[in-house]
Design a protein around this nucleic acid. Structure first.
Lengths: 198, 198
DNA sequence: CACTTTCTTTAGTGATCGCTACAGAAAGCA
DNA sequence: TGCTTTCTGTAGCGATCACTAAAGAAAGTG
């Protein structure tokens, strides 16, 4: 065989994730990435392809680590209301966690993109649409189970909670702490339809 | 005297505003700006200083044109509740207006910034903080007038509505139309405290 | 007509962008 | 000890970044 890689690919990917999370896709240069990852450009390109593929891999990693709480909350709670409430509560904790950059990487890392990064912008947009659809599915469960009034606009509710989550991301990047985000989350629950009598 | 400027400075500023609004501060290059403004770089630098000062002038213009509806709504409505409701309703119309780029420029044009644009990022952050403070002042009016319960967390409410407004900006940039934004705005009003009996 | 002044244009500056050719270094097999 | 293979580091590719020196063009004053 031959010489093996001397750096930890997974650790380097995590460092790239932090860099992209902090500054966003376009504003994070290869020079900044290689400095954060502790490697030189040729090693980066050999291990990850190019900047875009590295970012796509970073997004996948983000989804199964820092962003996984949404999927878990939606899967594990018995009702749509409880699922939404838990997503908001955990987002408040996660977005303002000082152990990593603030906010949601899916929301904030490809906002200001030139035309050559339109595909990256679209990738994150698709993730946001899918997350909104996942919210709607759980709210639809409540509707189907008769826990909320018939005729409830579940798509509108899902859009509202997606809106709040995205706003919470912006708020945390503007310095809001977990307590402030929790208060926002609590207020947002006032919009959830009243439970129907069973 | 001497030769006069041959382009319309105000019109050129408006074109720069559109360009920055669409792509953001850093992602909009001087080449893109000059193309949009119909002038060459030296004319831009003679008339506006540099990229940062042009952007600052663009932000000021945005505040007194496209963004002025918030100030008006907050100043003209008799109660805090009505003021917040009108801000949300008009934001829904404004952010999704097809006559200009979607969303709010103050929210979305300096999200992904390198270290050399930190001051621009801070400028917009300050504007957002001030907008949130303006919301709080009107909610405090309702509190002082006894229209909402004593002990209401007005700072939390202001943060919530700022969060919703910022989320609506993101939603519109993801393709939400005015009707969808109006539904979000209507749901957000459910969080406003119930009017106290007088 | 000059002459001055300020605009606009052309054509570039050095720096940085994403990315890579090439050579040196390291690891397994003979 | 080669020899092969693949990684790593140096150094630099063309393109683009924000920005500007220098010359041409236009408008006013004599």
């Amino acid at each position: 065989m031959a010489r093996q890689r001397t750096f930890d690919r997974d650790l380097a990917l995590e460092q790239a994730l932090r860099a992209f999370w902090r500054r966003g896709y376009e504003a994070t240069s290869i020079a900044e990435l290689t400095a954060a990852m502790g490697i030189k450009p040729p090693s980066l390109y050999a291990a990850f392809g190019d900047k875009r593929r590295l970012f796509e891999e970073v997004v996948a990693r983000y989804q199964r680590t820092y962003g996984a709480f949404t999927t878990r909350a939606l899967a594990e709670e018995p009702t749509g209301r409880q699922a939404i409430e838990r997503v908001l509560r955990e987002a408040a904790a996660e977005y303002a966690d000082a152990a990593h950059p603030p906010g949601c990487m899916i929301v904030s890392s490809a906002v200001n993109c030139g035309p050559e990064s339109a595909e990256v912008e679209e990738l994150l947009r698709d993730h946001r649409k899918e997350a909104t659809a996942a919210l709607k599915r759980r709210i639809d469960d409540d509707l189907a189970a008769g826990r909320i009034p018939a005729g409830t606009d579940t798509a509108g509710l899902a859009a509202f909670y997606a809106c709040v989550i995205q706003g919470m991301s912006t708020q945390s990047r503007d310095g809001a702490g977990p307590a402030e985000l929790r208060r926002i989350a609590a207020l947002a629950m006032a919009a959830y339809p009243p439970a129907t009598a069973t």
